[in-house]
Every structure is written in C-alpha cells, then in structure tokens.
C-alpha cells in the first residue's frame, strides 16, 4: 500500500496541483491592476514618398514616439510588446494595418521613454493610393505574463495626412 511508487505519485500529484493553483492565482491577480498608460506619437517629417516599379506607393518617415507604460507592469508581467501601427482605408481594401515601429519593454524601469526613429518596417500600400491619404496612428501593446492569460489594448492617436505629391 505505502510503497515507494505510491508515495512518489502522491508527492508529485500534490506538487503539480499546488503549482497549478499558484499559476492560476498569479494570472487572476492581473485583473486587479487597472493601468493608465499615456503616449504620444508624432510624424516629424516625410523623407521619401515614391511609387515603386511594381506600382505600389512607398513612404518613409521620421517619427517621435514617447510613452509611459509603467502602470502596465505587475508582478506577473514578463514583458510588454509595444508597436505603432498606421491604419487607413482604400477603395480596394477595407482595412490596411501596417506596423511602423515596435519594441519589447522588459521591465518597469524601461517603460518610460521617448525615441526618435524612422519607420522600422516598410510602409508600402497595395496599389497607389497614398497621395493625400489620411491615416490613423495607433499605439498598441500586448502584455505577456510570466504565466497565464495574455492581454492587449491600444491608444488611438491623432492621424496624419500624407502630402498630395510624391517627393
């Protein structure tokens, strides 16, 4: 009855149960955090704005991104993934979403900063619709927990209108 195998089984089962309960509680405790992040994204300049050989418009720009996401961090937060996306509509596509910049924030100490950058991923339209096009800028973040449920949210910024002519 109380053989070695029996005791080992009971011990392992108990340990795994406790670990699972602790993980669930840690994930559940994230619900009590009500974050109030702030951010600002500005298009400083349009550097290049051209039509590619294939006929798609491409634009490069310089952005100024500043944010304070410290309130997103709890004891169960491994990292926060943050990115700025441009969103616009064209006659062909009901939604175009293009990530312009992204970053990984590993800790609360690094969650308040301001950077000056050109777009990290190429801003290319499917077609030639970007002249004079107004797009929305949105800051999204995804919170990755140490264990449990992932969560995401966003702040919509003021948009920007691209110039009417190529340059």
């Amino acid at each position: 009855m109380h053989s070695f195998g029996y005791r080992a089984n009971a011990l392992v089962t108990f340990a795994v149960t406790i670990l699972a309960i602790m993980c669930t509680m840690a994930s559940f405790s994230d619900n009590f955090n009500s974050p109030s992040p702030t951010a600002r994204v500005q298009v400083l300049s349009i550097n290049r704005f051209q039509k590619q050989i294939h006929g798609n418009d491409e634009v490069t720009m310089t952005l100024n991104i500043s944010m304070d996401l410290q309130s997103l961090f709890t004891w169960n937060t491994k990292q926060v993934f943050v990115f700025v996306a441009a969103e616009y509509e064209t006659p062909k596509n009901s939604l175009n979403q293009i990530s312009l910049w992204d970053g990984i924030i590993p800790s609360k100490e690094n969650a308040k900063f301001s950077i000056h950058t050109s777009n990290k991923y190429r801003f290319i339209d499917q077609g030639s619709n970007l002249r004079g096009k107004e797009f929305n800028l949105t800051l999204h973040w995804h919170v990755m927990p140490k264990t449990g449920k992932m969560s995401a949210d966003k702040i919509v910024m003021t948009g920007y209108r691209l110039p009417v002519d190529y340059r």
């Binding site: 064209t90 596509n93 009901s94 939604l95 175009n96 979403q97 293009i98 990530s99 992204d102």
Partner: peptide, 10 residues
C-alpha cells in the same frame, strides 16, 4: 509569429 501587416479586401 506576430502579425505586422494586414490588408483586408473591401
């Protein structure tokens, strides 16, 4: 992997 660009048809 993570999605970085989306184009949805009208």
């Amino acid at each position: 992997h993570r999605v970085i660009k989306v184009h949805e048809r009208q």
